[in-house]
């Protein structure tokens, strides 16, 4: 299937500050992409460029097969990081307006509004003004209005920030549904556990540059710290001297072994089985958090230049 999103050598500068630097990405249709990076890494700028809200200084962006998102705006759903609604509009008017702006009309629009309100449990609030809603309710209304037109590509900028646990759950379910319906989803986050749970693909950006990108499984494999945990009865101490073991922490009945890069864990296991009776053996999966910290390192926190007017975030 064609790629939903292709970025080639995209660069965006604000004065002397380069927000996004020669960024390239390819996202196949139907996948969920987690866009990771510390604050100020260039996530929001990139997503805004994808949405044609701002334009890159150089490089190409292809969205749903078109050279500009503005040509396919009705097929994209967008939830910006800074979320807002018209306070004086009623819930129904809000959905009606955003639906119209995304090209929905008449009966379809009406039905979608009904479905959505039922879905998020705001039927009784449809004639209430947005200012009367609780924060959680407005958040629900936000996502709903972003995907009312059943977009093929959904772009969510920090969708989980500031949500209460119930809404986190709702949003995760909505994402899962979108994915089942065949939509391509991009969301930026710095919450690794969510990315791990929801994404097929990850791209990590730091200081405007891509650090790594690929399928989540591949990345895990590539950046595995290769830690072996072994439980058993016998002379586990000798495992420390086993070839390929770089470091070992051994206590009674338990060994935690860090392996050198090209060591086959199976060879170590074979050695362990000679030394002791093994009751548990595990190749520890590295979590995204560790990879993230390892790749971005201690200089991950990048200050937003002072005096700059545009919110250069994400």
């Amino acid at each position: 299937m064609a790629d939903a999103l292709v970025l080639t050598g995209v660069t965006k500068r604000y004065g002397r500050f380069t927000a996004v630097d020669d960024f390239s990405l390819r996202l196949p249709t139907g996948e969920v992409l987690g866009f990771l990076g510390p604050n100020g890494a260039g996530k929001t700028t990139t997503l805004r460029m994808v949405m044609s809200i701002i334009y890159p200084d150089s490089g190409q962006i292809e969205v749903l097969g078109h050279s500009r998102a503005s040509e396919v705006k009705d097929r994209i759903g967008y939830l910006p990081e800074e979320r807002g609604l018209y306070r004086k509009m009623t819930v129904e008017e809000t959905l009606n307006y955003f639906g119209r702006l995304k090209g929905l009309r008449g009966h379809t629009l009406h039905e979608r509004i009904n479905e959505s309100l039922e879905r998020i449990g705001l039927q009784d609030w449809r004639r209430k003004r947005v200012e009367a809603l609780s924060k959680g309710m407005s958040q629900k209304l936000q996502f709903t209005s972003a995907i009312l037109h059943r977009p093929e590509l959904v772009i969510l900028d920090e969708p989980f920030s500031g949500l209460d646990p119930l809404n986190v759950d709702l949003l995760e379910r909505m994402l899962a549904e979108l994915r089942r319906a065949g939509a391509t989803v991009v969301f930026s986050t710095h919450q690794m556990n969510q990315a791990e749970r929801l994404c097929d693909r990850i791209v990590l950006i730091n200081r405007g540059r891509k650090v790594v990108d690929g399928l989540l499984t591949e990345i895990r494999e590539r950046f595995a710290t290769r830690v072996l945990e072994v439980d058993g009865r016998g002379a586990l101490d000798d495992l420390a001297r086993c070839p390929g073991v770089a470091a070992a922490q051994i206590t009674a009945g338990h060994a935690r072994l860090e392996l050198a890069d090209d060591t086959d864990p199976n060879a170590v296991l074979a050695r362990a089985m000679q030394l002791a009776r093994i009751s548990r053996f595990e190749i520890q999966r590295p979590d995204l958090q560790e990879i993230f910290v390892k790749l971005v390192g201690s200089d991950g926190q990048m200050p937003v230049p002072a005096g700059r007017q545009e919110a250069v975030r994400g």
């Binding site: 949405m51 967008y78 807002g84």
Partner: peptide, 17 residues
């Protein structure tokens, strides 16, 4: 100013130029 203040503007710009 209300639209900017409430950040509705970015949602609008994702739908219209």
């Amino acid at each position: 100013i209300e639209e900017k203040g409430s950040r509705v503007i970015e949602v609008l710009l994702s739908a219209v130029s």
